[in-house]
Computed example of a mutant assay.
Amino acid sequence: MRKGFALTRAAADRGLAIVLFLIVWELLPRLGLVNRAYLSPPTEVAVAVGKLFANGAVWSHAAASLQRSLSGLLLAIAAGTLLGLLIGWFKRLEAIVDPLLQLFRQISAFALFPVFILFLGIGEASKTAIILWASFWPILLNTVSGVKHVDKLLVDSARSMGASRPYIFFRVVLPAAAPSIFTGIRLGGAYCITALVAAEMIGSSAGLGFYILNSQEIFQIPDMYAGIILLAFLGLALNYALALIEARFTRWRKGLSNNA
């Protein structure tokens, strides 16, 4: 009984801020405190979302956005993880490439978008490239940090027992760095959704980013907010999926916490 009450109370606490936010959002335009032409009440936005599902348009836009975001994110995971492991493991390599990486990481993906268009055109390749660039850096930096901050006692213990360098890397360093790597991947997932909007606003005919911009241009404001809400849920779904994958590959941490 107490456990059920505690769960109910926890759920209520977690939803309280959202409920209050929706109430304030509903009241601001209806009371005339904010121009209703610019801020649609959530009830109208909900109707717009329902229409998107009713006419089936949501699936084509969501599928296009999901395909672009996953393409860029998966490439960023492959490149960022591999390069991060090499930089974190080989100190000389870090000394060589770190100045260049520190320079490049200061360049916004949005600033490079014209460059991507020049070299790759306005098709899918340039959109994937901007998502890749935005997602790459948190994955790379967290991977490097995870490898560099592995407990030296673990490495020294394995080395003292005659373990080879490759064995230490794959059986000690890589599992110990996994939590940091997955933190970077989840951050990369958030960055890829942010970059997705900018990528789809140029030369697209489908996608939630395109739908948001197109709705704003034809002044269908409830539809614009509906696209924003759906994009937020897409980001939440992606983050939840990445969290499940992280839990799958770092189950050993649960065992350590239970033993502690």
Rank of each mutant, 00 (worst) to 15 (best):
T183M: 05
M224K: 00
G15C: 05
G56V: 03
K91N: 14
G4I: 12
V19M: 07
F119L: 15
M161K: 10
T128S: 13
F233A: 10
F169Y: 11
F169G: 09
S180D: 12
H149F: 00
F119D: 08
L174I: 09
T128Y: 15
L118M: 15
R171I: 03
T143Y: 09
L52D: 04
P222Q: 01
E44N: 06
S257G: 00
S135C: 14
L208Q: 03
S164V: 10
F170Q: 05
L100I: 15
L33E: 03
N35F: 03
L141R: 02
I130Y: 08
P29F: 01
L70E: 05
L75F: 11
Q102D: 14
L140D: 08
G255F: 02
G50R: 08
R186N: 10
V47W: 09
V155S: 02
T8S: 15
Y38G: 02
R248M: 09
Y211M: 12
P179Q: 11
Q102T: 09
A54M: 10
S126I: 10
A206F: 04
L256I: 14
Y167H: 14
R186T: 06
M1T: 06
L208S: 04
G184E: 11
F53Q: 03
L132D: 07
A78Q: 05
L83R: 11
S257K: 06
R92M: 14
T183W: 00
I218N: 08
L103G: 05
L244Q: 14
L33A: 12
P179E: 10
L70V: 13
I193A: 07
G207Y: 03
S60T: 10
I202F: 12
E246A: 09
T128K: 13
N239Q: 12
